[in-house]
Nucleic acid binder design. Structure first.
Lengths: 228, 228
DNA sequence: TGACATCAAAATGAATTCATTATTCAATTT
DNA sequence: AAATTGAATAATGAATTCATTTTGATGTCA
């Protein structure tokens, strides 16, 4: 029998916690322009809360590097500069490499089957050139590997660092060559994971991320150029 | 004559920012017992602020995993469980390994000289068995390598993850063998760094951290046993 | 004596209020 | 006409107030 606490879900979240989630989603969704000021008054009205929990939530988001707080001038949505991207990818690459290594030691058949299924789905989406679905599966595979590492700290760091990149990654696979290369890298990843070859999987992940990094950079350049 | 721009603006931090720093120091210093409730009223009185900025600061510290906020029950100082330590060390090891790799590419003579000096100091403290000073230099060397990576994200992640461990590390090098081993590992680190051999340095750092991990665990076991 | 219920005191969550700092815009000066 | 000053307005920072929940004590009854 369920305990009394489990009934109705432990909906005992404080208001500011819910606000953190809501705002994080809103920001990561891209519903607020980067660099745009976030007038807390408006946010409060729209979400129906007072300023106190809203300000607490903004402080937390600032600690997460999703917004920047300027004293006496409010919060602005933080965007990623090319320098940020250059710094983020190597760190994420190192984290994923570690995750791959650990995952090879601890993954069980069930988890491996699930990842294999996602991979097949992903390849299918690739064949049909369904970019959105492809990316979704792709993201899911990476997250599953990190999760399979069984290391909560690692999982949390990975999540925090890669969340702001999701938008950037969405525009990464432009060229057909890069796309094909990425898929073949994923094939190699799955092989190494199935063989429980941690060192190999780590190496593949690291270079996979490095390639993704370059692809994102080139895409950003291509976007910046015609914008002038 | 100096331009108006060169006059440095008065460093105006908001109250809650200062509070975050103060509280972080207080907690990392160990001035508050782990697991102890933190009555915000008392903290406010002692630090002479009202509850609003204090609560904002606590939210930020909770996001940093330094305290745990329990709805309607306040904040407790978060301690490290053995499981936390098991999860933290591999991640820190991966970050340091990456830092070593990057540092070998970017480090300049000046930085290398500084680290070499620290290393010699550290060895001197080792010979005289000055544990406190040894650890200080040791910490400084690791931080310098991370800094020499030139990657701000990496630096920040490293700082956030290793801060809670500082206390644990202080009790790490107990046995004479482990201490001697650590010093020789540091010798190898300096060699690899001087030779700009990134791959080697990365490998050394990773196993160095792994050894530190085991030493900390053994020390914790030894402490826990007689405590019963 | 011990378990349970009830009530008071204290602590936290959130809203409101007050004070200080930016921002905007009009008026004046060069 | 452009720029600078100054006042009015709006926004933020922090304190206070109010409401809800927890906690602890007291008293009752088995």
């Amino acid at each position: 029998m369920k305990s009394i606490d489990t009934i109705e879900g432990i909906a005992r979240k404080t208001l500011h916690e819910e606000l953190v989630e809501r705002l994080r989603d809103i920001i990561l969704e891209g519903a607020l322009d980067v660099g745009a000021k976030v007038p807390e008054r408006q946010l409060c009205e729209r979400l129906g809360v007072s300023r106190t929990p809203m300000r607490e939530a903004l402080k937390v988001l600032a600690a997460d590097k999703l917004v920047t707080l300027i004293p006496n001038r409010g919060a602005v949505v933080r965007g990623l500069t090319p320098e940020d991207i250059d710094e983020l990818f190597p760190v994420i690459g190192a984290l994923e490499a570690l995750a791959g290594e650990l995952a090879c030691k601890r993954i069980n058949g069930e988890e491996l089957d699930a990842i294999t299924g996602m991979h097949e789905d992903m390849v299918d989406h690739y064949r049909r050139r369904r970019l959105g679905e492809y990316f979704q599966r792709n993201q899911q595979i990476h997250e599953s590997i990190v999760k399979a590492s069984g290391n909560g700290v690692l999982q949390e760091q990975y999540r925090a660092l890669s969340a702001p990149l999701r938008r950037a990654r969405y525009v990464a696979n432009l060229s057909d060559e890069r796309w094909a290369q990425a898929v073949s890298e994923h094939e190699a990843m799955l092989e190494a994971l199935t063989a429980r070859d941690g060192a190999r999987l780590a190496g593949i992940l690291k270079s996979h991320l490095s390639n993704k990094h370059e692809a994102v950079l080139r895409r950003l350049e291509a976007e910046a150029a015609p914008a002038r």
